[in-house]
Design a binder for these strands. Structure first.
Lengths: 335, 335
DNA sequence: TTGAAAGCGGTACCAC
DNA sequence: GTGGTACCGCTTTCAA
């Protein structure tokens, strides 16, 4: 049998409550006793049984990381796992463990079970897994949570995301700084919230400089490499004056750069290209693409920290938390 | 306060042991009682408290997924997270939860704490996080485990991996089938075990056909895109007769394809290219690269299943389990 | 077929 | 400062 708090108490010649106090750093124990107990702990190699602690203290020091998953997702959406890694690190530094819960199609029942079974003290949930019903439920239950990514519906949840509008502004500002006048934008479809926010940012920034993004320079397409390719071909064919393209994401960027190369357009001399996010492709296009990057690892860490605050201070409140993007200049916009 | 087993017992008019038995599907309860209890459960929305169960049954139905992590790892090594996702799915289907534990530099102390605190029933551990000391410890403690990836040192652990030797054979066999005679190999350095195994497989298969891989056709280099590029340039310059190249991994493949394009070599007419793994780059090179792929999602699932077997049957034993790779033909070898 | 009761390994209140 | 003890919510004998 493994060693329990009783064994430690016996060896140290104290009661189990004293051992418990020492283990938990209670200030009311004398130095001498602390030493006796710690010696006993060391000699016995005692490690507190988490199962016992969880039950007694009514908390698990465990949080759930909930997300939608699909086969091959680690390849299509590595960012999500980078967020998770960052969250995991922040959590473990604070004595928390992280349970990974990958759902096919998030249902309210699954979320309820997580909450009601009391196996976690709180949850981080990716916006992709958050339905209005789930949002309503965790808000009503006042269950500690942090949503990663801005929800695309009205809600009362606490969420954290990068400032995608600012990202768009930075992209535009950078292109203006290298004297580009005819800037085009290739983005996702209307329902791609992130793409839309980035586009808004671009538009705002151009507005500040008395410029604007003409309708003909904006393409909204499915986010596939092929769509990025075709969109670029069409843009350049119809508007040969275009001297810069902003791609709403890495996949479109990959198609765009390939298209420019095939068209024989020199990058960046004739057409400069900016995209969002460093990975997975901005770093391997030829030439490499300048990107407005998000520190997703840090984003995960921030979300974890906020969640822990909420767990420990039920009245602590934040509605949203926005992180700031960073410009990474590469060959595609180098003068 | 939330609803407990006592509330259910009261409403159903039975004892708590009866409720427990119903919840756990004991065969000794009458149909009538089962119905009464289930009705009570439903009306109260009762969900068993996992903390209480864990303590009472001395198990947590929770396993740890342990791996080394670094910033940006999700981008450099998405495979690991795909394995995790696959494992998570298999675990949850069997009523287990999965705790993600990302370690900077795995130490025996951290592993001991995981084992001794009894917060998990077993662990999946990635070969990169397995030191000889850790291996010795979990074997000695007979702690249920499954190592993902073949360890590169003598040990008594149970591990699961893809058959990298067979992968090499498949690559060679495929190139022979499209009548290539002069096959080169670009791999990682000597200490890159996976690359070495794949190379061995290639060599074996060629041997079966009375051919061999001349030393001059083998390059061992650091696995960066640039190294793959340079290696290719040098190979082709020195040995223009080469009509096929096998790249030990996706990164080398990316550099290799770029080099061939820059050299003006037609792929696959002049030089065919095969690599290992579909992602992240084999699918986006121009042309796309034929790959010997591993179903890493499935690999994770297999490992999880084996681990559960070991948890439930202490005497169940497997030393290693090998999965089979699959050939995915793309343009880079199309006739 | 059912229920009483003894844990599981801790925590935390309260008395000393 | 320290220790006795009543839980925490459930599982599992064992007797009825």
């Amino acid at each position: 049998m493994s060693v329990t708090i009783k064994d430690v108490a016996r060896i140290a010649g104290t009661s189990i409550s004293t051992v418990s106090k020492v283990v938990n750093g209670s200030p009311t124990i004398s130095e001498a006793t602390i030493k006796r107990v710690n010696d006993a702990i060391k000699s016995l190699n005692y490690v507190p049984n988490e199962r016992g602690r969880n039950l007694a203290r009514k908390s698990t020091k465990n949080v759930a990381f909930v997300t939608k998953v699909k086969r091959d997702m680690a390849f299509y959406n590595p960012h999500l796992f980078e967020v998770m890694t960052g969250a995991g690190k922040a959590l473990s530094q604070r004595g928390y463990t992280m349970e990974f819960i990958g759902l096919n199609a998030p249902s309210i029942e699954e979320i309820k079970k997580i909450v009601d079974s009391k196996s976690v003290d709180g949850m981080m949930i990716h916006a992709s897994a958050l339905t209005p019903e789930i949002a309503k439920y965790i808000v009503k239950e006042r269950f500690p949570h942090a949503v990663m990514g801005m929800p695309n519906f009205p809600n009362g949840v606490c969420w954290i995301d990068n400032d995608n509008n600012l990202s768009g502004q930075l992209a535009a500002k950078h292109l203006l700084s290298i004297e580009r006048q005819k800037i085009a934008f290739i983005g996702g479809k209307q329902n791609d919230l992130i793409s839309e926010l980035r586009l808004e940012g671009v538009d705002e920034e151009l507005g500040h400089h008395m410029m604007s993004l003409p309708k003909e320079y904006i393409v909204k397409t499915a986010s596939t490499q092929e769509d990025g390719y075709q969109a670029t071909i069409k843009l350049i064919k119809n508007h040969p004056e275009i001297d810069a393209i902003i791609c709403a994401n890495n996949i479109l960027d990959l198609g765009c750069i390939n298209a420019l190369n095939d068209l024989g357009k020199k990058i960046p001399e004739e057409v400069a290209v900016v995209t969002f996010d460093d990975y997975p492709y901005a770093i391997i296009t030829k030439p490499q693409t300048t990107a407005i990057n998000i520190d997703v690892f840090d984003l995960g860490g921030q979300a974890a920290r906020l969640l822990i605050e909420k767990i420990n201070k039920p009245n602590y409140h934040f509605q949203s938390y926005i992180t700031v993007p960073l410009l990474v200049i590469r060959e595609s916009t180098r003068k």
